[in-house]
Design a protein around this nucleic acid. Structure first.
Lengths: 206, 206
DNA sequence: CTAATACGGCACTAGACAGTGCCGCAATCG
DNA sequence: CGATTGCGGCACTGTCTAGTGCCGTATTAG
């Protein structure tokens, strides 16, 4: 669908840059307004493109948005992009700064904008799950597991549930309460919930 | 605005029932579809009313929806409506059944539908906060505090954060993950997070 | 009864937006 | 060069829906 006519066809080639520009513009608009307010016109203008250029590459509005979600940059949430500060608490805090709050703030806004779509399309749920929800949970699961492995805490009763605490509460606050997810809030969750639910290993302590 | 002409005016009186029917229909539609798909036509049809009857009472679509949110029945979340089973764990579980899942399932759906509105209007945030977010948090805060008061657990480090765990994680799951908030899931949060973060009182135990 | 208001149903206006067609220009192949 | 395709911009169609006006009917005060 987005393939460039590499064959021996005549004619001008599709600009691969445009794909990225359009998807990025889509994410920008999605992060700033709401799904219903995302117009192709707006995206095209933002990307410096014509509407046709968009319709030539994607079936329609929904397909475009799904593609944009799928290319949300979650690479920084892979094990390699995660901080390793020595303690779980400061790992959590390190996530707050660089990619995370601007990074995450953006992810949260996109997440909320797409919510309208989620209630209708199964594909949207899949896209959001794959691009945003799963990577976030996986990142926290990784950090906690690593802390357990190095003996900082005893293995938790339910790692998966614990790994979802911060994404859930941050999303709830940013989205439904429309309040900033700042360090103060994060600390209240980290200390008051996640770390509180973890126990020191009963035997040797460090 | 919704006042019935009680003065010595002539003419047919406004049907007070209609107010409730229309607001209820609005909530129904909100719970089933999405904010953008809530048409006055749909609400009117559901309420067995004409569109004029709606416009006669509210300024427009947004006002109607705000009014509907405000009348979400959260009375069952007051202290009097909450279960008192003797232990915090079974209190939590009791919330899952009666008003809660059908009750809460409905609240969650409405919450998600209004999300589109939240990103634009401050009033919507206020309405949702007052009608849904705050009552939910308050209910859990009450249950936890009561358990602490009767000596079941030691006072938590951060009661407010803890009280938001279940609403947040339930909303996140129901909304962004589009998965059912069933007993299995609730138990994983209750045991794996909330109760894990609470400690037995160090001194006399019960 | 008469005047005034509420009600449901229908038709209408106005605006917004998805999607398409066309034009002129740019790039690329043979 | 000529054919073919990509591109931005403009105009157009079709649809959907908020909001309003009108009609016939029902209700109520005086």
């Amino acid at each position: 669908m987005t393939s460039t006519p590499t064959a021996g066809k005549a004619g001008r080639r599709r600009d691969p840059e445009k794909d990225a520009q359009i998807l990025q513009a889509t994410l920008d608009v999605l992060a700033e307004t709401d799904y219903a307010d995302v117009t192709i016109e707006l995206v095209a203008a933002r990307a410096g493109a014509g509407r046709h250029t968009i319709y030539r590459r994607w079936e329609g509005k929904d397909e475009l948005i799904l593609a944009a979600i799928a290319c949300t940059d979650s690479a920084d949430l892979g094990p390699d992009g995660l901080p390793d500060t020595g303690t779980l608490r400061s790992d959590f805090l390190a996530l707050l700064d660089p990619n995370w709050m601007g990074g995450n703030e953006r992810r949260l806004r996109i997440l909320s904008s797409v919510s309208a779509m989620i209630t209708r399309t199964t594909k949207a749920v899949d896209a959001v799950t794959k691009a945003i929800v799963d990577p976030s949970t996986a990142a926290y699961r990784f950090l906690i597991q690593r802390a357990v492995d190095r003996g900082e805490y005893a293995p938790p009763r339910n790692l998966d549930a614990l790994a979802q605490v911060i994404p859930s509460m941050a999303a709830y606050r940013a989205f439904f309460m429309q309040q900033v997810v700042d360090e103060e809030f994060m600390l209240s969750i980290i200390d008051g919930v996640v770390l509180a639910a973890l126990r020191e290993p009963s035997a040797v302590n460090r």
